[in-house]
Design a protein around this nucleic acid. Structure first.
Lengths: 238, 238
DNA sequence: CGGCAGTTTGATGTTACTCAATTTAAGTGG
DNA sequence: CCACTTAAATTGAGTAACATCAAACTGCCG
């Protein structure tokens, strides 16, 4: 059971659109607070919705759309740390930290929910189920980061991309019904490049190669996997 | 305050040597259990002291010596995830998981302490200081892993090595008195290579280059940093 | 129809890997 | 203390993987 499903009642799936937008880092997001401790907001594709080192009393959950958490270096290089799907916390460990140590951008149009940190902590103290959900979620975050370290440190370009696709596919499949191995896939090659530490040009070449070998194909924002077994042989860690 | 300092009373610093050794994965480590929930063990340099996927009721803390946590791929490649120093948990998140998802090897002769998971969980439930120490330790683990992802994904060979050295230096300095920028440094170049995703040969070349530029030098298991400012310019993330 | 963002392709450059030989350092036993 | 052994580090030459630069192409939208 995810933490989000315990903590958050997100209206977006029903209402469709919320109407409020994030502001710049200087002006905090304007948003409605239906219950005092919880509020909602929306952002357009490409908008930055969390800023590194910005203190915040809120913990955010993605309700609809895709986003990504990343770390930007002084010279412009950026590492995408995780693609966020509906139900994902921006970062579970943020519950225990006063400020984010990462940034978040919307990949598609998104809707998010912010929950007061104090509220989450209070619920943790009161309810052992929530306590466990938070602990598991943090442990999972560490496990994922650890796996990604191994991927970036040891795997070739093709292996890294295959890993990323498989990893995303399994997470998407956990939330959507997948028919005929066709997955919604809003990433640009630039995003893939920044996630696996390659250049977009090289990502394009690897994709061409995978296409030629009839392992996968892309069209209209969908990823079609024709040879899952082969993709797994390339990109699985174990 | 570290968790270890709250939870563990380690006799090794006083007694010098404990006398018991880890066995192979099939036979569990023989060790004394002075208090039922806590026990101690020692291992020689190079010995494996934790096995991936091996269920364990104990959480381990390194008491003396150096060790490293790593992940090994089927074809032999290995990623070193973290070098462990005295006081480090093998992994804080292991508190919440039935089995390790990584392996640990002793780098030097080491002494470790094992604590029953149930004991730690009981103390967490009872004492909010310990609860916070555990949460912070887990958050720190995630932060480190996240930073390492960025390092491996974005930095060049020289930058990665400089980062690793600086990171290690700051951690060593937190436990030892450092005089004249000379740090104890028991790693072989193979370890550095496996930690930053390079070959030992290339690590050697990068070291030669850093030496030629009079940034650092190595001798008798000690790392001497002659130009810290330059090393930081190369290897710091922010 | 023109413009723009994203992708593809080709040519070339750089970084890091591989293989193999050599040197240095670290033990070990006489 | 010194030959002998062994592991680790260094060096060189050749190669593979990936980056860079620039141009051409595609689909999309006004």
């Amino acid at each position: 059971m995810s933490i989000a499903s315990i903590c958050v009642t997100c209206p977006h799936r029903e209402t469709g659109f919320c109407g409020t937008l994030f502001g710049s880092p200087s002006e905090p997001p304007k948003a409605d607070r239906p219950d005092g401790w919880q509020h909602f907001a929306a952002a357009r594709a490409g908008e930055q919705i969390a800023y590194r080192n910005q203190p915040s009393n809120d913990i955010f959950v993605l309700c609809t759309g895709w986003a990504f958490r990343y770390f930007q270096l002084a010279d412009g290089r950026r590492q995408i740390l995780k693609f966020l799907l509906p139900g994902d916390f921006f970062s579970p460990t943020a519950i225990f930290e006063k400020a984010y140590h990462f940034s978040v951008k919307a990949l598609t149009e998104v809707q998010v929910s912010g929950i007061a940190r104090s509220e989450i902590l209070a619920r943790c103290a009161a309810d052992s189920d929530i306590r466990w959900a938070v602990a598991n979620s943090c442990a999972a975050e560490t496990r994922e980061a650890t796996e990604l370290v191994t991927v970036l440190g040891q795997l070739s370009a093709e292996e890294r991309i295959a890993y990323l696709l498989l990893h995303l596919m399994s997470r998407v499949a956990a939330r959507n019904v997948i028919r005929e191995q066709r997955y919604p896939f809003p990433l640009r090659q630039q995003h893939i490049a920044d996630a696996v530490g390659l250049t977009p040009v090289h990502v394009s070449r690897v994709f061409s190669h995978l296409r030629e070998r009839r392992i996968l194909a892309m069209s209209e924002g969908m990823l079609k996997v024709s040879n899952l077994a082969e993709l797994e042989k390339i990109g699985s860690l174990r």
